[in-house]
């Protein structure tokens, strides 16, 4: 996905130079946006999708630190990563900024390599945060509806061959899809736990995973996408089966997926967000 980058600096020369440094890095940029101070930046943030903010500290009207504080008070902007680009060298000041939510710091001048390193760290952190949230959502859903236990991952766990994939889409403040991929025998346990069935057929397996997808969405959406699940319309979950491990490998290859060990069964979740 191409990133939209907002450069905030009162010097047009510095904005131009930063833009050129970014262009030297192998980073797919959709749009460059520029602001001369924090007020202009907040206006742009309110009107456009921004994925990364690079901001100076000392600017007229509103500096970078105040801008970050204002961003943190808004649901729409609080999670947008901000990297401060400044000649500031006092470590206490930098520590304060990091404590206030600034993601990282680049000292002027910086090299394309330094910028690349920061963006790599940022995106890997985001992936970890996403994974953590997915894990939490799935864990809560399982504990709530199926009384199943989440265990630490073990190296010798078998990659599922026969799998069921449940998908549930949501639209509203954000649009996307949640996928849960579970082994066939795990769905059987799930169906037994949910329905107290003595014999589980294929339909029961699929229905059990659909129910898991449903409750996971209800818990997941308020946690990361909006403060309330009521702000979303959720589709009826659908399921598909697979007799080889291709479904598993395809899903877990995505950076926005996470894998859990649920009582010895590997279950994967993926979040697909649409622009």
């Amino acid at each position: 996905m191409a990133l939209n980058v907002l450069i905030v600096d009162d010097s047009s020369l510095t904005r131009k130079r930063i833009r050129r440094i970014i262009e030297m890095v192998d980073l797919e940029v959709g749009r460059f946006m520029e602001a001369g101070n924090g007020i202009e930046a907040l206006r742009i943030l309110g009107e456009s999708r921004v994925d990364l903010v690079l901001a100076d500290l000392n600017m007229p009207e509103m500096g970078g630190a105040d801008m970050v504080r204002r961003m943190k008070t808004s649901e729409a902007t609080k999670s947008i990563p901000v990297v401060v680009v400044s000649t500031e060298s006092r470590t206490t000041r930098i520590k304060d900024l990091l404590a206030e939510g600034v993601k990282d710091y680049l000292h002027k001048p910086f090299t394309p390599e330094e910028f690349r390193e920061i963006t790599q760290t940022l995106w890997s952190e985001q992936a970890i945060e996403y994974g953590d949230v997915l894990t939490k959502a799935l864990s809560q859903a399982l504990e709530t509806m199926a009384f199943l236990t989440i265990l630490p991952m073990e190296e010798d766990l078998a990659i599922p061959v026969k799998t069921v994939l449940a998908e549930i889409s949501f639209t509203g403040a954000k649009t996307g899809t949640i996928q849960i991929l579970a082994p066939w025998n795990f769905c059987e346990i799930l169906a037994e736990n949910i329905g107290a069935l003595s014999e589980v057929d294929d339909k029961a397996r699929h229905d059990a995973l659909k129910e898991l997808a449903n409750v996971t969405s209800g818990l997941f959406l308020p946690m990361v996408v909006s403060s309330t699940a009521d702000a979303f319309d959720i589709t009826v979950p659908t399921t598909t089966s697979c007799d080889n491990s291709s479904q598993w490998h395809e899903l877990v290859a995505d950076q926005n997926s996470c894998v859990l060990n649920i009582e010895g069964y590997m279950v994967a979740t993926r979040l697909i967000m649409k622009d």
Partner: peptide, 15 residues
């Protein structure tokens, strides 16, 4: 202070 800081910043950015 603002002007000196800005000249310093721009000088630094262009090397």
């Amino acid at each position: 202070r603002r002007i000196l800081h800005k000249i310093k910043g721009e000088s630094s950015m262009v090397g």
